[in-house]
């Protein structure tokens, strides 16, 4: 088991952002955390990537606790945040080399990895261009390449296609599908078609609580609905 979440809870004063979340994610699985805005998806990702300390509960990431041993966890994971988190005045290659370096690669190794990533993500032609000159779609590609250059065993993708046009979104899907099975991917999104196209399993989160967990077929069977949209609307309607 790669990710083992046990009763994870995050409270901000009176508001409970994530409420007693428990689930497991297998090695190489493409897991999607689906929910509306403010459902608790990003807060969950922040806790799992050691950016935010849980109020209670814990999660084991490849046997290391996010509470007890965040430094060990950080070596094994990487994240592509919701906003395109790139260094605007650095070139595409420099952005990649920088991330590889802070994860411990020496210069030569970092440059070699950067070239590999640029080839994989179709960024080689733009290697010397400043990141701020790239289109929104290419910036997202770079952002995900930056998350992958450290060879993480688990990667968190927080709404990676938010705000992208249809073509850019589909291009990114292709890249993500190629990663499937190779590393454990935890994706948060509120695009249902994205989940259907990419995910092995889905967790539907609403009001900080996990409302459903399983493959899309399992969710259809359990709820009696024929589409993910109907399942999602039914499961998130009860709380309104």
């Amino acid at each position: 088991m790669t990710v083992d979440i046990k009763n994870l809870t995050k409270k901000y004063k009176e508001r409970t952002a994530v409420d007693n979340l428990s689930l497991s994610i297998e090695k190489g699985e493409f897991f999607a955390l689906l929910g509306q805005n403010a459902a608790g998806k990003t807060t969950t990702i922040k806790m799992l990537s050691c950016l935010s300390t849980p109020t209670s509960g814990d999660a084991l990431m490849l046997e290391d606790s996010i509470v007890q041993n965040p430094t060990a966890v950080k070596q094994k994971i990487n994240i592509s945040p919701q906003e395109t988190a790139i260094a605007p005045n650095l070139s595409v290659k420099e952005n990649l080399v920088f991330i590889a370096s802070i994860y411990g690669s020496i210069k030569q190794e970092a440059e070699q990895k950067a070239v590999e990533m640029m080839k994989k993500f179709g960024l080689l032609e733009r290697a010397k261009n400043k990141a701020k000159t790239l289109s929104g779609g290419l910036q997202r590609r770079l952002s995900i390449a930056m998350a992958l250059i450290s060879n993480p065993q688990i990667i968190f993708l927080d709404e990676p296609t938010l705000g992208l046009d249809v073509r850019s979104r589909r291009d990114l899907w292709k890249i993500l599908l190629e990663l499937k099975g190779k590393i454990t991917i935890v994706l948060t999104t509120h695009y249902l078609e994205e989940v259907e196209a990419l995910a092995d399993r889905v967790g539907i989160i609403h009001g900080g609580k996990l409302h459903a967990l399983g493959t899309i077929d399992e969710l259809k069977e359990n709820t009696g609905h024929s589409s993910l949209e109907d399942i999602f609307l039914t499961l998130t309607e009860e709380e309104i």
Partner: peptide, 8 residues
């Protein structure tokens, strides 16, 4: 946020 998630 990205670099806070790194081992720095």
């Amino acid at each position: 946020m990205r670099i806070f998630a790194s081992p720095l």
